[in-house]
């Protein structure tokens, strides 16, 4: 069953086309990610889905309701966590959730609140002021507030930006557990390793979706192969390979290089002898699985050069 669909939706702000004839369908129970560079239209898309921004043209349907015509129906069934989510610093965890329960007119919210605090493991801190919480705890409290009215879909706009790795991992545990309740999650993220955790990913650029697929499916679109080279003098090798015509991309890691070539079988022998002629010692090489970052960089580079 469909959680939402948008069909040829556009939005311009002055002379800037933020979203350009975008179409997208998300099924119930998916964890779906919108990924793309700054200014690619991710946030505007999320805001149109929530009914906060009105599209210039096209239709947005959420849970079979028309977002523009049936705003109240939609509002009751969705939750939205914006990038600049504000909690009340001088209220406690309990009071913040209570405040959101009242905004959403949730009656008898106390049991739901207890469940959410358990679920986000915030119960021991419930009497603490929001200002005294760590970044990761604030993020989880914001999520709990977003969930107080038991929405069917939640929209998360860069929920883990600026959150440290341990809290980020913890936040993902909570999201994984949420999926078990059948909720649909739509998120934007600048972290491509996070996009790997989603069931499907849409890559956005210039207000358009370039591709939508599972993380594994997206990797099929990689132009070329990723080859890992373990060699001496990494930085000099990086500088040598950067202008080489058969090397499409090169990344220098602490102890190795990753290069993208059209074909490992055809291109690697030439590259190895080129490195040898510059007295770089190559101790090992192998083709590796591309990361989503490799795929995105390759797709976006193709676009920008086209």
């Amino acid at each position: 069953m469909q959680a939402l669909s948008i069909s040829t939706v556009s939005k311009t702000f002055g002379t800037i086309t933020a979203v350009d004839a975008l179409s997208l369908t998300v099924e119930r129970g998916e964890m779906f990610a919108l990924v793309g560079p700054d200014g690619s239209g991710k946030t505007t898309t999320i805001r149109m889905l929530c009914g906060i921004v009105k599209p210039d043209s096209g239709t947005v349907t959420v849970l079979d309701y028309d977002v523009q015509k049936q705003k109240e129906e939609v509002k009751r069934r969705i939750g939205y966590l914006s990038q600049r989510f504000s909690l009340y610093g001088d209220l406690t965890i309990d009071e913040n959730i209570e405040f959101f329960a009242e905004i959403h007119k949730v009656r008898g919210y106390k049991q739901r609140r207890d469940e959410l605090l358990e679920f986000t493991r915030l119960t021991p801190f419930r009497d603490r002021l929001a200002d005294k919480l760590s970044g990761g705890m604030k993020q989880k409290l914001a999520l709990a507030c977003t969930l107080i009215h038991t929405p069917d879909i939640i929209f998360l706009d860069e929920p883990t930006t600026g959150v440290d790795p341990v809290s980020r991992r913890d936040f993902w545990k909570v999201l994984s557990a949420l999926l078990k309740t059948g909720i649909t999650i739509i998120m934007t993220t600048p972290y491509l390793d996070e996009a790997e955790r989603c069931s499907r990913v849409a890559l956005m650029n210039d207000g358009k979706i370039l591709l939508t697929d599972t993380p594994a499916g997206l990797k099929q679109h990689m132009n070329g192969e990723v080859v890992e080279i373990v060699c001496s003098d990494i930085r000099r090798s990086f500088a040598l390979l950067k202008p080489n015509p058969s090397v499409l991309e090169v990344q220098a890691f602490g102890d190795r290089l990753n290069i993208v070539v059209r074909s490992a079988a055809a291109d690697v022998p030439g590259i190895l002898s080129f490195l040898a002629s510059n007295s770089v010692e190559v101790s090992d090489w192998r083709t590796v699985r591309p990361s989503l970052e490799n795929v995105f960089i390759s797709l976006l580079t193709d676009r920008r050069e086209a």
Partner: peptide, 9 residues
Amino acid sequence: SGVDPVMRR
């Protein structure tokens, strides 16, 4: 922090 993947690269 806050920079997109392409610019980060």
